[in-house]
Amino acid sequence: MAPVREEVTDEVLMMRFQGGDRSAFAAIVRKQKTPLYNFIVRQIRVPQVAEDLVQDVFVKIVQNAADFKHEARFTTWAYAIARNVCIDHLRKMSLRKHPSLDQPSKPDEDGPTLGERIADASPGAQVDRAAIGNEMQIRIVRAVELLPEEQREVFLLREVGHVPFKDIAEMTGVSENTVKSRMRYALERLQQALSEYEDYARALR
């Protein structure tokens, strides 16, 4: 689960890819596919769709590789693409009158529940985080999914994509202070959600 740590930066890899080096692109995919997948799946919630969208993101990276300027951070550029892919997808879904994805997933819905998904997808993570337990992770994930879209977006960009607040502000078209405010609200909400769980967990002990 640990992301592959390479000395070569994403920007250097991207430069190599622009020069025609396909192996550099493969390295970027290896490095960035999991964070991008997590960024998308936390918003879309359906793993299969999220994988398709990750694929779309990388195709767009290939198609627009020439537009990437090396003054910019690769992750900022890539997450801007991923964000647009997600927004396009959500717009399409709302037009098709699918059940709103902003709604929390209901327990009576078909398909695997969030808990099942995490249990299935990362059994190793479960072991690693034995102290807090699977329950805690499910709680965090659910809390994030329950965040208002604006806050969730900022939280995911910062926590998963490690995009600086300044870049998030540019990407989302709001001021940096607004981004920070959203981040703070998000954290306070999560804190609230987790404290409830912590109280619950402490009570169980």
């Binding site: 689960m1 992301p3 396909r22 692109f25 493969a26 995919v29 290896r30 596919k33 999991t34 964070p35 997948y37 997590n38 799946v41 936390r42 793993p47 999220a50 994988e51 990750v54 694929q55 990388f58 195709v59 990276i61 290939v62 998904r117 995490i118 997808a121 990362s122 993570a125 985080r129 807090i132 992770q137 965090i140 994930v141 809390a143 994030v144 995911l156 926590e159 998963v160 703070r184 954290l187 306070e188 999560l190 804190q191 987790l194």
Partner: peptide
């Protein structure tokens, strides 16, 4: 409180399926 939340509220990393990488590379080429 905020710092504690940030330290605790780490999203579990969910791994995509194994074939995603090859799918991406194929689609990209």
């Amino acid at each position: 409180a905020l710092r504690a939340t940030r330290e605790v509220a780490i999203l579990p990393i969910e791994e995509p399926s194994e074939e995603l990488e090859s799918r991406i590379l194929f689609a990209a080429s």
